[in-house]
Amino acid sequence: MKPDLKSIFKQIEKVQEELERVQAELENKTVTEEVGGGMVKVTVNGKREVVKIEIEREVVNPDDIEMLEDLLIAAVNKALQSADKMISEEIAKVTSGLLPGIPGLPFNFPGFKA
């Protein structure tokens, strides 16, 4: 039995429209992660952009800038990982079932502008 190409292309078009909708929604979704017991907090949106950094005064020590730098790096990386997870989960909702055995496509597949 031959696959119905017209039906397949309609399904692909529908998924593409849904992905565009999800991409627009992700621009407004954020995740916030903290390190150092909440001393440094970083917020990232669904476009993987850092939109906010909060630093408690106690962690700002001119004699120990390296500690602050390390905390910032850790918080940004943690927030980016959470954003990637959020993006992948949202895309998996749209793409799951599209290809049997593949739960969802990675967030950086061709055509998705993250």
Rank of each mutant, 00 (worst) to 15 (best):
M1N: 10
M1H: 13
K2F: 14
D4Q: 11
K6T: 15
Q11T: 14
Q11Y: 04
Q11V: 08
I12W: 01
V15Q: 06
Q16R: 11
Q16A: 13
E17G: 14
E17N: 13
E17M: 13
E17V: 12
E20L: 14
V22C: 11
V22P: 03
Q23L: 11
A24S: 13
E25M: 01
E27H: 07
E27L: 11
K29P: 00
T30V: 14
V31E: 05
T32F: 07
T32E: 12
E33R: 13
E33S: 09
E33N: 05
E34N: 07
V42Q: 06
T43E: 04
V44G: 06
V44A: 06
G46V: 04
G46I: 12
K47Y: 04
V50R: 01
V50E: 10
I53M: 01
I53N: 00
E54I: 12
E54S: 07
R57A: 15
E58Y: 07
V60M: 15
V60R: 14
N61H: 03
P62I: 10
P62N: 09
D64A: 02
D64I: 03
E66H: 09
E66G: 11
M67H: 11
M67N: 13
L68T: 08
E69P: 01
D70S: 05
D70A: 07
D70W: 01
L71G: 01
L72N: 00
I73S: 12
I73M: 10
A74P: 11
A74H: 10
A75C: 01
V76P: 00
V76F: 00
N77G: 05
K78G: 00
K78I: 02
A79Y: 01
A79R: 03
A79E: 04
L80V: 06
L80W: 06
A83V: 04
S88H: 13
E90G: 05
I91T: 03
A92S: 14
K93L: 09
K93Q: 12
V94T: 11
T95F: 01
T95K: 03
G97F: 00
G97H: 05
L99Y: 06
G101M: 07
G101H: 07
G104V: 05
G104W: 06
L105P: 02
L105R: 03
L105G: 05
P106Y: 11
F107M: 05
F107W: 12
P110I: 02
F112G: 02
F112H: 12
K113Q: 08
A114Y: 09
A114V: 13
A114R: 14
